[in-house]
Computed example of a mutant assay.
Amino acid sequence: MPFYKAISINESTTAYFWKISEDVTDLFRAVSLKDVTLFRYEGMKSESHQKGFLAVRMLLQHLGYTDYDLSYDEQGKPHLNDGKHISISHSHEFSCICISDSLMGIDLEKCKDKILRIAPRFLEMKHLENLSDTEKIQKATVIWGVKESIFKIKNEVGISFPEHIFENEFDVAAGNCSAELHFNNQIEKFTIQFYNIEEYIFVCAFPK
């Protein structure tokens, strides 16, 4: 069974991972989708995206939920009908959901060389000084995940990764850091935890 693992982030927050080994037909047959979800699925042109989307539903079913328990608001943010908070991410061969009693946001990213080419667009390059190439890729991937996770929490039009979300200096080996969102004349602080999942980085952000 491709349920991969669960990570307990704190006493009320757990992340669940599905490693996708099934083909898209097997995944489709294994899940029950409501009409609006089916319409969204049928509009996806990428099979990889379809698999990630269906694997999220597999995780829900693994936990006793179904697609009928999941809805999205006008901004595209997911919600569970039992009132618990949920955040969703998928990347290549993994899908992930995080369920919590507290507001949070997650991101899952595969570590790839190309992130160093785009790093100047979203982070302060001083964060990557005096690191090996492998360490730079890992740290840049964490920083992207930090910004993506915070954006998922706030979900407001106009938020810019380089202009509004600032990560404080951190050591990748620590597995945690902090960040701030400077937006609409407010400063909001976040605590971050991150983990290695094979060659992926998983990030979870919480508002302070």
Rank of each mutant, 00 (worst) to 15 (best):
144 W>Y: 05
61 Q>L: 02
23 D>P: 01
166 F>K: 02
17 F>C: 13
159 I>F: 03
48 S>R: 14
49 H>Y: 05
126 K>I: 09
112 K>A: 14
58 M>L: 11
111 C>Y: 08
4 Y>E: 00
182 H>Q: 07
204 C>M: 02
35 D>T: 11
88 I>R: 03
62 H>A: 11
2 P>D: 05
40 R>Y: 00
150 I>K: 03
203 V>M: 07
123 L>S: 04
40 R>S: 07
160 S>I: 04
12 S>F: 13
194 F>D: 02
157 V>C: 08
7 I>C: 11
187 I>L: 09
168 N>K: 12
15 A>Y: 03
207 P>H: 00
118 I>S: 12
82 D>Y: 01
54 L>M: 06
157 V>S: 13
167 E>N: 00
67 D>L: 04
182 H>N: 00
161 F>K: 11
77 K>R: 13
12 S>V: 13
26 D>S: 10
128 L>Y: 03
109 E>F: 12
140 A>Y: 15
48 S>A: 12
128 L>I: 05
159 I>E: 03
163 E>W: 01
176 N>V: 00
159 I>D: 03
87 S>A: 13
196 N>F: 10
120 P>Q: 07
195 Y>H: 12
140 A>C: 13
126 K>M: 05
166 F>D: 00
166 F>G: 09
167 E>T: 10
115 I>F: 07
158 G>L: 05
173 A>L: 08
161 F>V: 13
148 E>N: 08
56 V>N: 01
81 N>S: 12
75 Q>R: 09
22 E>T: 12
121 R>T: 13
156 E>K: 08
63 L>S: 09
148 E>F: 00
19 K>H: 14
35 D>E: 15
174 A>N: 08
173 A>E: 07
117 R>V: 01
152 K>F: 04
85 H>N: 07
4 Y>H: 05
137 I>D: 11
24 V>T: 10
92 H>F: 13
29 R>C: 05
47 E>G: 06
141 T>V: 15
103 L>Q: 13
16 Y>H: 15
127 H>N: 10
73 D>F: 14
172 V>R: 04
187 I>W: 03
142 V>M: 14
83 G>Y: 06
207 P>T: 01
23 D>H: 08
196 N>R: 07
73 D>E: 14
200 Y>Q: 10
23 D>K: 09
85 H>E: 04
44 M>T: 02
136 K>F: 10
175 G>K: 01
181 L>H: 06
156 E>L: 09
177 C>Q: 06
155 N>D: 00
106 I>V: 15
46 S>I: 08
72 Y>M: 04
60 L>H: 04
95 S>M: 08
58 M>P: 03
113 D>N: 08
3 F>L: 15
52 G>D: 10
